[in-house]
Design a protein around this nucleic acid. Structure first.
Lengths: 193, 193
DNA sequence: ATGGCCATGTAAGATGTTACATGATTTA
DNA sequence: TAAATCATGTAACATCTTACATGGCCAT
């Protein structure tokens, strides 16, 4: 194979373009921006050169379109691109696909002993509050996804929802184990006394 | 502030050095290598320059140690380093801390429709099998963690275990929804019964 | 004493981020 | 018409990966 295996970002971009049939780099950025998960910054400096690269590899083709407008590129997935997308998904499955994803929250909790006791409790309380808000947002997104007819979208959002719930339950366990008041966390806004 | 906020990797390295009291870059790599989550490659080319940078910023200090051996650096966290570690953990909590972490499996599932039907089923089956193995490994790690006296380590491993379980249950739901034959790997033991 | 592993790095290259530049389109 | 926003990029920089280099230590 002359073409290297697509990276995570490349595979996702291929998937997005494939789903949209044809789209611009800007549209891909929009999809990332609206994604409920913290993917990448969706920065222009990442997306535009990346799609150029994918075109050079023959995985995308672009059609220049400028009817009185500023020049713009409409990308489509080529035959080779679809093949690369399938290869990226698998099988064969790669370790990174199935491995437990890194979680910044879990990483921080690992070193929670570095915080003074007071600050530790504050940290947990704020996290619980944020997770609560996140959960309600994901739940409404899930309800909305139910009305769509894209079964994979529903399943993906459902997966995110399960993760968010598990994370929140875990945090409650953490708070309980550390003997931290959890009830006050979501109700009050105590900060500067 | 002259020093920028520590990145994810920098914060984690600070935390590891803090936990070990003092250690070499190689020891930090070992911690990453043995981590159950797919963090980074723990490549030498990332860790060694990074710890050098942290020392330049005054967050680490290194003591050269070469008693008949090859020169080696023992790093310790400075006062400023501990402060930076606490700042990295929070509060204030950052969006990336609390956001739903990106999951390569969820990303792929989003585009599962790109696979031919046969291959799709194969993909799900293999993933389920891999998740099953992962889960048994995490469970034994959890049992082992129970014997340690580091409460944050127990909680972190417990969190990873919860995530892995949720992910597996989600995949079973996926398989069921897509009407895919699931093998013995999905035989759920009734832990909630 | 030699092959293999431990341990400490470096060099080159790929990739992503931040900040900026610029023209087109909409809105006040 | 001026300001804001959309849309398409580019440039400089920071960071991470892959691959390599090197020297000490250990078992056979």
């Amino acid at each position: 194979m002359k073409t290297p295996a697509p990276s995570e970002l490349e595979g996702t971009v291929l998937g997005v373009v494939w789903m949209l049939e044809s789209c611009t780099a800007y549209a891909v950025r929009g999809v990332f921006r609206d994604s409920p998960t913290a993917n990448w910054s969706a920065s222009a400096g990442a997306i535009y050169p990346l799609m150029r690269r994918l075109e050079e590899r023959g995985l995308l083709v672009s059609e220049s379109r400028q009817q009185g407008q500023r020049p713009s590129r409409l990308y489509r997935v080529t035959r080779a691109g679809l093949s690369a997308l399938r290869g990226w998904i698998g099988p064969p499955i790669t370790p990174t696909t199935v491995a437990l994803p890194p979680d910044p929250l879990r990483a921080r909790l690992r070193f929670l002993g570095a915080l003074p006791r007071r600050r530790r409790a504050d940290f947990i309380a704020r996290i619980l509050d944020a997770l609560h808000h996140q959960l309600t947002e994901l739940e409404s997104l899930f309800v909305e996804a139910e009305t769509q007819d894209d079964v994979y979208w529903k399943l993906a959002v459902g997966g995110g929802l399960r993760m968010a719930r598990a994370r929140r339950e875990w945090l409650i366990e953490v708070a309980t184990t550390l003997d931290i008041e959890v009830g006050a966390a979501t109700a009050t806004n105590p900060e500067s006394a």
